[in-house]
Simulated assay, not measured.
Amino acid sequence: MHSEELEIRTGSSEVVRDLTRDCARFLESAGAEDGLLNVWVPHATAGLAIIETGAGSDDDLLAALRELLPADDRWRHRHGSPGHGRDHVMPALVPPYATVPVLGGRMALGTWQSVCLVDTNGDNAARTVRLSFLAG
């Protein structure tokens, strides 16, 4: 198994950050052939999604999360900025992990799929992402 940690600056706004190039660089440096890429975010308020980016789907995902999980005072978890409790519920919908098949050293993603970090928590400006390659 080969692993690496990335620090991703997400800033103080909701963000969908495309990690696909970072994942590809990691696989190249790991000398990956066939196996599985596991992507893990060790945070209680961030997740990973495999979605299309650049055509509005990333913004649509954030809009859907705002609609499903409004940043208001309904949440029992109340530390941090107003509505922060929703950030702790978000990983139940957008999980903190993703596993992608790797064939010939490349992720077997569909044409429009990207591996993305989803962070709705403006209170935490930096995220750790752990990449692990398991050879098959």
Rank of each mutant, 00 (worst) to 15 (best):
R127V: 09
A71I: 00
H88T: 07
M1A: 11
C23E: 00
D72I: 13
L62N: 06
L65W: 13
G136F: 12
L6S: 05
R78C: 03
L68E: 10
V39H: 05
G54C: 09
G104V: 07
M1R: 03
E5G: 00
N121Y: 04
A55V: 14
D123Q: 06
P95G: 08
D73N: 14
D119L: 05
P82Y: 11
D34R: 13
A55F: 12
T128R: 15
L131H: 08
I50H: 05
E52C: 05
R127Q: 11
S3V: 04
I50Q: 02
A125V: 14
D119K: 10
T120A: 02
F133D: 04
D123E: 07
T120D: 05
R127I: 12
A98L: 12
G47I: 09
R127N: 13
E5K: 13
Q113W: 01
P70M: 09
A126S: 15
L48E: 06
V115N: 05
G85H: 07
D60A: 08
P96F: 00
L62S: 08
H2L: 10
I51M: 09
P91I: 08
W112A: 01
R74F: 12
G80P: 12
S114Y: 01
H77Q: 10
A63M: 12
L134G: 00
A108Y: 00
L131T: 08
D72N: 15
A63N: 14
G110H: 06
V94K: 01
D123L: 10
T111A: 14
G110P: 10
L48H: 09
R76C: 01
A98Q: 14
